[in-house]
């Protein structure tokens, strides 16, 4: 790879493309009025994120981001939308409460953004205890069962809650009929 001409330039441009995809996708998801386009924005954002993960030397995580978020989550959301309302949304006027909610959300987002940005720039970041894995099955297995076992278990609890919640909702729906 080192004999590639203009390698730094290409790397910078690729990085900027991924960063732009992430930010642009997120903005598209938040700002568009059609819900199908906001899902497309979400998936664009996820692809951009996957690219950023790739830049951070974790190809496995990058591919999982695409596999799970684009391939499963976005597809499921679109499926839900398609079952619900295939047509244009009704353009409603801007009400008093929506302005209030928007201000509140904007303030919260600004605080959150300021906090994470400050933490990211000025915080002391210790070097990770292990070198990032090369994406081999062995390395992933070992890190999932040693360093990241807590996260692994918490994710399974989240999934359990999601399944139980889905079952509860489905039961309620059946009773109402």
């Amino acid at each position: 790879m080192n004999d590639f001409p203009f390698a730094p330039l290409i790397l910078t441009v690729t990085f900027l493309v991924f960063a732009a995809a992430t930010a642009g996708g997120a903005l598209l998801a938040a700002l568009t009025t059609r819900i199908i386009r906001s899902v497309c924005g979400l998936s664009l954002c996820c692809v951009g994120l996957a690219g950023l993960y790739y830049f951070l030397n974790s190809p496995f995580l990058a591919l999982m981001e695409i596999l799970i978020y684009v391939g499963a989550v976005c597809v499921t959301i679109i499926f839900g939308i398609m079952l619900a309302e295939p047509d244009e949304p009704v353009p409603g006027g801007i009400s008093q409460s929506s302005v209030m909610w928007a201000t509140g959300a904007l303030a919260a987002a600004a605080v959150l953004f300021w906090g994470t940005a400050r933490l990211g720039i000025s915080g002391h970041w210790p070097k990770p205890p292990t070198t990032p894995g090369d994406g081999s099955v062995r390395a992933i297995g070992i890190s999932l069962l040693t360093t990241y076992s807590l996260a692994f278990e918490v994710i399974s609890v989240v999934l359990l809650v999601a399944i139980v919640g889905a079952l509860a909702l489905a039961r309620l729906g059946r009773h109402h009929e």
Partner: peptide
Amino acid sequence: NVALVMVFAFSSINVMAIM
């Protein structure tokens, strides 16, 4: 190293595109 995951990741985009 993760070629197998890559094939599945990108083929999952395919569904979304057709849809």
